[in-house]
Every structure is written in structure tokens, then in C-alpha cells.
Amino acid sequence: MGERVRHYRRKNGNRTQAAVAGLCGITERYLQQIEAGQKVPSADVLARLAAELGVPLAALLTADGIKESSVPLTAAPAVARALMGYGRPRSSSPASPWELRERVEQAWRTWQSSKDRFTVAALVLPDLIGDVEHAVRVHRTGTDAQAHREVLRVAADLYGLLRSYCRRTGRLDLSLMVADRAIRAAEDADDPVRIATAQWNLGHVLLSHSEQGAVEEAKEVALRAVEQLQQAPVTVETKAVAGALELVAVVSDARRHHWWEARDRLEQRAAPLAEQVGEGNVQWTVFGRTNVAMHAMSIEMLAGEASEGLRVADRIDTHGLPSRERQFTFGLELARCHDLRREDATVLVHLLDLEDVAPEDLARSPLARNMILDLQKRVRPTFRRQVDELVQRLQLI
């Protein structure tokens, strides 16, 4: 174990023992003893080391280390074809912007609330993409300025949904493409709220990207959008979107292990906006007090502070959220906090509950896949059958 700690300390930044030890709340001497094999760290210290070194806990516990599971590529081919312009031919008479508005909003409601949202989206999105893009093309040369602007707004909202779908199905390339299309549509519509929302979408794509500097760039994109949004009239919508953008910056700080900066931004910038707007779902961002509290727990989970994360979670009730995805994320991070504490029975209970809440999300989540496979390796015989059956149902092997 000590050799693996030393390996990842040198590999991931080649930092000194003093620096890593200080960030993990232990003495330099204690870390020296761990790396020399003279001390075996507690589960809590080991979790802090794993979080600070940027590796899964199992990488410090297994002989060969592990690679984190990636999102399986599950985007429907028909969705990709439609985005590339290879859908079926469109009639010369497009659907009205108001009809398209209702269809896009229904697709969003389904995406946020349905257990089988990936299956439904794969069926609905191809035709919707074709119809919206056809309407944009027709109205571009038309004389009805109001209809043209409305169809551009519809397109921006659809591309926001597609950003989430493509990211969750492992197609970051398509996710980045539709995030860019959302920005262009919102700018052409001259809609400040949708421009900022499109930047929020881009921020989430960058947070998921593995390229060096992408997570930091997500914060830059978000804060630039907040600054631009300040030029628009102050409304509940502008405050909510600004709050959602601040949360992108919070996640960026946490992902880069800037824990105190993340906590301070959450408390000083995002939380006051949440108090002003209350609970809501402006532009499908689900920004509000509950979402801010969930991010507070996320920071502690990412920092390896499982006990503090669980303390924060005790004050959160997600049942009123309009988004099943956010409910799933909360449950998954709750399971992860218990996982850091090696409370395997509780982890299993939460994972089985998540399978009922959002089975398609569970099968696609890298964090969930890693957690389940790690649990399978170490779980006591009492629970092994249930874990093995979960692995089989999710087709993880």
C-alpha cells in the first residue's frame, strides 16, 4: 500500500510528502511511515490520501491499481445521424415554433422525470432534431421576425437537452458540438438568459472532459457568463441562471482540490442567490436551495470528508426536486460517502435504491460502476449474492 501511495504521489504532480500530508491532515512523518510500509493508515486517512492523489480508493488497495470505468457509449445512432444532418427528408412546411416549443418542453420533462429517460430520448430526439433544425433553416429566410426568434430559442433549449443526453451517453464529442450550437442559437435570438444558460451547458461539458485544463476552463466560462449576465435586467431568471453558473465554478474548484475556495464560493455567491430565488427549475437548471445544499455535500465527498458529507446530507430532502437525475446524483454521492467509510451494507442499500430510482443512470455512471465492482471484490459473503446479481443486471461484466 505504501508503495502505491508513493507511486501516485509522484505520478500525479510529483508533490512533496510535506505538501500531501498537510492537505490530508496528517504529519509528514506519518506519511513517510505509510510509504515505507511501517504504518497502515486508517480507512479515513486512506480515503483522504486517495482523494488528494486523485485516484479511486481501490487503486491504493489492489496490487495492480485500477483504471476508472468510462461511460459506456450508449448514444442512439439515430440521434447522432440526426445531429449530422442525415435524418429523413423534411417537408417544405415546418412545424410552428409554438408546436416545437411544446414538444421540446415535453422532452425536457421526460428527461428529468422518467426512469427510462435514455430509452425514451432515443426514440423522441431524432425526429425532434430534424424538425427543429428544419424550422430554423426555413425561418432564417422568412419575413416573420418573431417566429424566427422563437424557433431559435426552441433550438437553444433543445441543444441544452442534447448536451445532457450526449454527455450521459459517453459522447463528449457530440456534447461539445451541441453546446456550441446552443450558444449560437441563443446569440442569434439575442436572448441573454439563454446565452448564459448555453454557457452553463458548455461548462458542464468541460467539467466532464479529461483534457488538461478543461476543468479550469469550465470555471472561466461560467464566471465570464455571470459577468455578461449582469448587463441584463435583474429578474428571477437571471438570478437563477447566475446561481447555476456559480455552481459550475464551485465544482471546478472542488475537482481541482481547491476545497476552501469551493466552500467559500458556495457560501458567499451561490447560497445568497438560492435564498433570493427559492426552489425552481429556470432553464432546466434545477437551481435553488436544495441544489446548493447538494453541492455542499459534493464538496465534502470529493474532499474525502465522508463524515462531514453525511452530516450535510442529513439536512437535505430531494423528494421535491423536479429532476430525477439530481435525486440520483444525491443518492450516488451519499453512497460514496458511506463507501469511503467502508460501510458496505449501507452502500449496497443505497445502490439498490438507486437502481429503483434511475436504473439507466446507474448503469451509465462511472462512479457507480467503480463502486459496485469494488464492492463485489470485498463484500462479505452475507451480501455477495445481492452484489453479484446487481452486477449482472447492470451488465457490468
Score class of each variant (00 low, 15 high):
6 R>S: 10
8 Y>H: 08
9 R>I: 10
9 R>M: 07
12 N>R: 15
20 V>G: 00
22 G>C: 04
26 I>M: 05
27 T>I: 06
27 T>E: 06
28 E>I: 05
42 S>N: 09
43 A>T: 13
44 D>Q: 15
44 D>C: 04
45 V>R: 04
47 A>K: 09
50 A>R: 03
52 E>F: 00
54 G>D: 08
59 A>M: 05
64 D>T: 15
64 D>F: 02
64 D>Q: 14
70 S>W: 00
71 V>G: 02
73 L>G: 11
76 A>E: 15
77 P>Q: 13
77 P>S: 11
81 R>A: 15
89 P>I: 13
93 S>Q: 10
94 P>F: 08
102 E>L: 14
109 R>Y: 02
110 T>I: 14
111 W>E: 09
116 D>A: 13
120 V>P: 01
123 L>M: 12
123 L>T: 11
126 P>S: 11
127 D>P: 03
130 G>N: 14
132 V>N: 02
138 V>E: 09
138 V>Y: 00
139 H>E: 12
140 R>T: 13
140 R>I: 00
143 T>R: 14
149 R>E: 12
152 L>M: 10
155 A>N: 13
159 Y>Q: 08
162 L>H: 05
162 L>C: 03
163 R>A: 06
164 S>N: 11
167 R>D: 08
182 A>P: 04
183 I>V: 15
186 A>K: 08
188 D>Q: 13
196 A>E: 04
200 W>K: 01
201 N>R: 12
208 S>C: 06
213 G>N: 08
217 E>H: 10
225 A>C: 07
231 Q>K: 11
234 V>D: 13
235 T>G: 01
244 A>W: 05
249 A>G: 14
251 V>G: 00
251 V>W: 06
254 A>Y: 06
255 R>W: 01
265 R>Y: 03
266 L>E: 11
269 R>K: 12
270 A>L: 09
273 L>I: 07
275 E>N: 07
279 E>S: 05
282 V>G: 03
283 Q>E: 15
285 T>E: 02
288 G>E: 14
293 A>E: 12
296 A>T: 00
298 S>P: 03
299 I>L: 06
301 M>K: 00
304 G>Q: 04
306 A>F: 07
307 S>F: 05
309 G>R: 04
313 A>P: 09
317 D>T: 12
318 T>M: 04
325 E>N: 09
332 L>W: 03
332 L>C: 01
333 E>F: 10
334 L>W: 13
339 D>A: 14
347 V>F: 07
349 V>A: 10
351 L>P: 05
355 E>N: 15
357 V>M: 01
364 R>W: 09
366 P>N: 06
367 L>V: 13
372 I>D: 04
374 D>G: 03
375 L>I: 12
377 K>M: 10
388 D>S: 15
390 L>K: 11
395 Q>W: 07
395 Q>A: 15
